[in-house]
Nucleic acid binder design. Structure first.
Lengths: 344, 344
DNA sequence: TTGTAAGCGTTATCAT
DNA sequence: ATGATAACGCTTACAA
């Protein structure tokens, strides 16, 4: 495997200087048309392609955004990625992915990794961003923005997400409007999960708003995955006696679907015997039967906003970053998993 | 935002040369223990982290693998990615992602992109790899291996995948063993889809093996997605008269699930009125009800093999690459979407 | 064990 | 419009 041609080889063969070759790459209009085409022909001939690494070193800019995600297998991630990827591409940016595998430690490593790779900005997604991240966040020296998360750490950061509290509040309202009173919740995990806490809070405030007492035995936690939802539903069911639940809201689509499966295995029909609503509106929400009524997160929009702002931060000299949490509108999408109850 | 410290800054502050600092980074054992810790302390203090770009330029190696995929939203991709990411990490490699968005043109761009970024090797996934790719493949000068695909182009390449023909053959056998005779197929697209063609061929050869005549009206094509499966099933159903199908095999899980939904909408029960089997064994296969019987592809294993071989090719001087198609074992996983028919 | 200096492939500054 | 030449931050002979 022979060495790859460099700008120098092209220059030599074309009988010009490296500078000129570099110019046809970056500012073609500055070079004599005739010479320009000649040089281009030589490039073709040599199958030359510029070394992005070397360029990065020279210009001190990689045109790359780093993305730290909790896990590539979380279905919602691919939805988010689309928006990010598109917006990045439209702005001439690449994106470098780092999967933290739901580990705080790995996430920290991710920052180091991305920093070493000189990314111009970082998009960070995580269930909980707390003081543990402050040291890195302070020292990183690279703009960071949060997607689908907000920070409880000291370091202020721009964050783009849905209003989780409000979203679940809306779900509860919706359910109540359809005659439900005994509404359960399958929440996120109880610890290290800011998002989960918010959604649970939305549930409580929804109930409170309609003067329905909160009952501990109506909520169970899960890990956002199918099995977690299944298990949580199982526990909920086992605890039932005369006071049957008529509806469940889950903190994720996957858990909602797990819950539906659990109900099915107990001979219960959704939505006739139990209504279920999810959270996310992943592609699978419409694939299951009954199709899942759920809260849609504007993943694409979030992705786009996030890179927009990051780009601004990157070439903002001095102007302070727009820290704070920005809520993008969620939407309840009605499908088939909720029934309206007749007053008895 | 102040400039980031370099190896030079560390050297100066520690009162040593850049070379020594570099050594503690790469060959710590070569430097005096005392000096070593002193230098490390300075690094801490300065919050120094080495510039991977510069290093890459210098050593002419980026320790990065490029991955070209058809679409990030294809669920099977995340499964494949896991294997690749893990194997890469274990071997000290990073992976750079490029989404071709199902476009041949974009895929070609991807090669250029990855080449410019000096990746050490490329993993390529695509439904069809034909002569159009030959020019780039020939000139690229970087080891390339195929995952979940094989080539019909001139350029020989190592490829790792399941034996698609055999896999669908096995499905048909399985169905026949359960008393099915009128078996339909929802295949991949008819053009630009080598994988789809193979699976269809598996269907035909399965039928042939059991002396069941192939009937054109029993097969419909789809785009591998839910909607495609739904539409294909719809067409199949509309064409039915007295000769009812009793089973369907689909070229993907998503299409199988789409088909199931279509059947449901027509008041048909799976598996009682119609058996359905998928292909892939994505996580959603077990989330739907009835859970989908399907062919499991060993995504992780494929991912691992692929990087293994790529790594070998990367530091093989002279030894020719192990071109050819390697089949990894698939497996039929039985769930709930197939019934066994009683002889009438 | 350590330092000097050349080199990696670009871009950028400054002449010309 | 073009060419020298010095960065960019790191590694690596080679010398000491």
């Amino acid at each position: 495997m022979k060495k790859r041609p460099t700008i120098g080889d092209v220059a030599e063969l074309a009988g010009v200087s490296k500078a000129t070759v570099s110019r046809v790459l970056n500012r073609p209009e500055l070079v004599d048309p005739e010479k320009r085409t000649r040089i281009r022909r030589v490039m073709e001939e040599l199958d030359f392609s510029p070394n992005a690494i070397a360029r990065g070193l020279s210009v001190q800019k990689t045109n790359t955004l780093g993305l730290v995600i909790p896990g590539i297998n979380d279905l919602f991630f691919t939805e988010l990625y689309r928006g990010i990827e598109r917006a990045s591409r439209e702005n001439g940016m690449k994106v470098l992915l780092f999967d933290s595998q739901h580990s705080r430690h790995r996430a920290l490593e991710g920052f180091t990794f991305l920093k070493q790779h000189q990314v111009d900005g970082i998009i960070f997604t995580s269930k909980l961003i707390d003081e543990d991240y402050d040291p890195v966040l302070q020292r990183i020296g690279i703009p960071v923005v949060l997607a689908l998360a907000e920070t409880v750490a000291k370091t202020p950061l721009p964050a783009f997400k849905v209003d989780d509290v409000r979203a679940v509040f809306d779900v509860v309202s919706y359910l109540i409007a359809r005659g439900h009173q005994r509404i359960g919740m399958i929440s996120g995990e109880l610890e290290n999960d800011a998002t989960g806490a918010l959604r649970l809070q939305g549930y409580r405030s929804g109930l409170a708003h309609y003067q329905i007492p909160f009952r501990e035995e109506y909520v169970e936690a899960g890990n956002y995955r199918f099995d977690g939802g299944y298990a949580a539903m199982q526990r909920l069911l086992e605890r039932q006696n005369d006071n049957q639940l008529t509806a469940i809201c889950a903190a994720s689509d996957e858990m909602a679907i797990g819950a539906m499966r659990c109900l099915h295995d107990h001979g219960l029909k959704v939505p006739d015997d139990m209504s279920v609503v999810g959270f996310d509106d992943l592609s699978i929400a419409r694939m299951v039967t009954p199709a899942l009524t759920t809260i849609a997160q504007p993943f694409s929009a979030i992705g786009e906003r996030v890179v927009q702002v990051l780009l601004q931060m990157i070439d903002a000299d001095g102007t302070p970053p727009p820290c704070g949490t920005y809520y993008l509108p969620h939407q309840l999408v009605e499908r088939e998993s909720v029934t309206t109850l007749h007053r008895e």
